[in-house]
Deep mutational scan, measured.
Amino acid sequence: TTYKLILNGKTLKGETTTEAVDAETAERVFKEYAKKNGVDGEWTYDDATKTFTSTE
């Protein structure tokens, strides 16, 4: 399943996707990605669109 991440950081904005077996796995991948890029925001998830959003 393809999951999408929308980053709305103070210094980094953008989108990326990952293939994962479930939302929990995708969330771990995306949170590590955000951390590596210095984004520490509030997380939301929309199951209908398989989209995570992190907003600082």
Rank of each mutant, 00 (worst) to 15 (best):
A34V: 07
V39K: 02
I6K: 05
K50T: 03
S54G: 05
L5R: 00
S54C: 15
R28V: 08
L7K: 00
E42G: 05
E27Q: 11
D46F: 03
T11V: 11
E15G: 08
T11K: 10
T16H: 14
K31Q: 07
K36Q: 13
A48M: 10
L5H: 01
D40K: 10
W43Y: 03
L7P: 00
E56S: 06
E24Y: 09
T53F: 11
D47A: 14
T51C: 05
K31R: 15
T53S: 07
V21Q: 13
V29Y: 15
N8P: 03
K35Q: 12
D46M: 03
T2R: 11
T16P: 02
T55S: 10
A34Q: 02
T17E: 09
F52G: 00
D46Y: 03
T25K: 06
K50P: 00
K36V: 12
D46S: 05
V21L: 13
K13Q: 12
D46E: 06
K4V: 09
Y45M: 01
F52M: 01
A20Q: 06
G14W: 15
Y3G: 02
K10S: 11
K35D: 07
L5F: 08
E15R: 05
E42Q: 12
W43D: 00
A23M: 13
E15S: 10
T25G: 06
K31Y: 06
T18F: 14
T55W: 09
V29M: 10
V29W: 14
W43F: 09
Y45W: 02
A34T: 06
D40Y: 14
I6C: 07
K35P: 01
L12G: 08
L5P: 02
T53P: 00
K4G: 02
L5W: 04
E56P: 06
V29I: 14
D40N: 14
T17C: 12
F30D: 00
N37I: 12
G14Y: 15
T25F: 07
N37A: 14
L7E: 01
N8Q: 10
Y3V: 02
G14D: 12
V21T: 12
F52I: 00
F30S: 00
T49P: 00
T18M: 14
K10A: 13
V39R: 03
L12Q: 09
T16W: 15
G38W: 05
E15Y: 13
A20M: 03
D22V: 02
V21A: 14
T53V: 08
A23K: 15
E42C: 12
N37T: 08
T55A: 07
K50M: 07
A23C: 14
F30M: 02
A23E: 07
A34C: 14
T51F: 01
T16L: 15
V39C: 08
E19G: 04
K31W: 05
K35E: 11
V29L: 11
E32K: 06
E15H: 10
G38A: 07
E19M: 14
A23Y: 15
T49W: 03
D22F: 03
A26M: 01
E27L: 15
D22P: 00
Y45N: 01
S54L: 15
A34N: 02
T1G: 09
A26Q: 00
G41Y: 05
G9M: 07
I6E: 04
K4H: 13
K35L: 13
T44L: 07
N8D: 11
I6Q: 04
V29S: 05
V39L: 10
K4N: 05
K10H: 14
L7I: 13
E15N: 07
K35C: 11
N8M: 11
G14E: 14
E15P: 03
T51K: 02
T2C: 14
E32N: 06
W43S: 01
A23T: 10
T51Q: 03
T17Y: 14
G41F: 06
N37F: 15
G14K: 14
G9Y: 12
K36F: 10
A20I: 02
D40V: 13
N8A: 09
G14P: 04
T51M: 04
D47S: 12
G14M: 15
W43L: 08
S54K: 03
Y33N: 02
Y3K: 01
E24P: 09
A23D: 06
A34I: 06
T25W: 07
E42I: 15
T44S: 13
L12R: 06
K4R: 12
E32S: 06
G41S: 05
D46I: 04
Y33S: 01
E32R: 05
S54Y: 13
Y45V: 01
K31D: 02
K35T: 09
T44G: 06
T49S: 10
F30L: 07
D40I: 13
T49Q: 06
S54W: 15
N37R: 12
T2L: 14
A20G: 03
S54H: 09
V39A: 06
T44Y: 10
V29N: 06
Y33F: 11
F52S: 00
T1C: 13
R28D: 05
T55E: 07
D40M: 13
K4A: 04
V39E: 04
V29A: 08
G38F: 06
L7G: 01
A26T: 01
K13H: 11
L7R: 00
E32P: 00
L7Q: 02
E24K: 12
K13E: 05
T49K: 06
A34Y: 02
A20V: 04
A48C: 11
L12Y: 15
A48H: 10
T1E: 12
V21G: 11
T17S: 11
T17D: 05
T11H: 14
T16E: 06
S54P: 04
E27P: 00
E24R: 09
D47F: 08
E27T: 03
T44F: 10
A48I: 11
I6T: 04
D22Y: 03
T53K: 06
T2W: 12
A34P: 01
T16D: 03
D46A: 03
D22R: 03
K10Y: 12
D40W: 13
G41M: 05
T1I: 14
S54N: 11
E19Y: 15
E56Y: 09
K36A: 14
L5A: 03
E15T: 13
W43M: 08
T16K: 09
T44Q: 10
G38H: 07
G14F: 15
K10P: 12
L5C: 12
K36P: 01
K35V: 09
E27H: 13
L5Q: 01
E27G: 07
T1R: 09
K13I: 11
K31A: 05
T1Q: 11
N37P: 01
L7T: 04
V39S: 04
D47R: 08
V21N: 13
V29F: 15
K35A: 13
F52T: 00
T18Q: 05
T11Q: 11
K10C: 13
D22I: 03
T16N: 04
T17W: 14
N8K: 11
A23F: 14
N37C: 14
L7Y: 11
E19V: 15
D46N: 11
E24D: 12
V39Y: 11
T55G: 05
D47I: 08
A26N: 00
T2D: 04
E42F: 13
F30K: 00
G9Q: 04
E42M: 12
G38M: 06
E32H: 06
K36N: 13
T44M: 09
E42D: 13
V29R: 09
K35R: 14
G38D: 06
D46L: 03
A20S: 07
G38Y: 05
D40R: 10
W43V: 03
E56H: 06
T11P: 04
K4M: 07
Y45C: 02
K36D: 12
A20L: 02
K36I: 12
D40E: 13
A26E: 00
T51G: 01
T55I: 10
I6N: 03
E24F: 09
D47C: 07
V21F: 12
E19W: 15
Y33H: 04
A20D: 02
E19F: 15
T2A: 05
G14Q: 14
A48K: 11
Y33P: 00
A26H: 00
T44N: 08
K10R: 13
E27M: 14
T11N: 14
A26P: 00
